[in-house]
Write a protein that binds this DNA or RNA. Structure first.
Lengths: 96, 96
DNA sequence: CTTGCATTTAGGGGATTTCCTAATTAGGCA
DNA sequence: TGCCTAATTAGGAAATCCCCTAAATGCAAG
């Protein structure tokens, strides 16, 4: 959960996730979409992989990254537990 | 959004958020719940405040922190946009 | 004003992040 | 084998993070 939210805390990594929403993409194509060097993007992809958010699959010389929805759902579950379950007794305690 | 997810990436800060779910708490009471010094907890509270996740309210000499749900909902919206809107055309691409 | 309590700010040490360039691995093809 | 392309790992500099101790602030009461 720790690495998961940390991975989500970087704009480049969030954008990669958004790109992968439409389907898997090759590492090079992902890197080309950013204004930074390829090794740097590889680093971000590794962070996402560590967080369980993406998984790489090799196809010949190219490596495609696929979004892993289940990890996103873990984060989602935490946030929903916050917004979803408020104690009704102090919802409007200081209304004036 | 950046500071928001970064704030969520630390276990102590997530724990504080969970504690605040039941209602506002004094800084000292929050600090007492952890095995670290009070200044350190103040630092975490500042991170949460920067992220818009909590807001402090002074009452005499004590300072109470209240959870700010709307910030949580921002993060929620991002994650839902990932899980919620998959392109149906490539959802089952390798089904042969 | 002085004392006391709740809380924050200041400053520093050690670990981690983020980016770069240079070197390396891995696969496909002559 | 040797070469080209795709992609990663290695290593290092600058910034940031996390935790601590020590000092400061804000408020209330005597």
């Amino acid at each position: 959960m720790n690495t998961l939210f940390k991975a989500l805390s970087h704009p480049v990594r969030r954008r990669i996730i958004e790109m992968l929403r439409k389907g898997p993409m090759a590492s090079g194509d992902i890197a080309a979409a950013f204004d930074m060097t390829w090794p740097t993007v590889t680093g971000h992809l590794n962070a996402l992989k560590e967080a369980g958010l993406v998984s790489p699959e090799r196809d010949g010389t190219t490596i495609r990254y696929r979004l892993d929805i289940s990890a996103v759902e873990e984060a989602l579950a935490f946030l929903l537990s916050i917004t979803g379950a408020r104690s009704p007794s102090d919802g409007d305690k200081d209304r004036d």
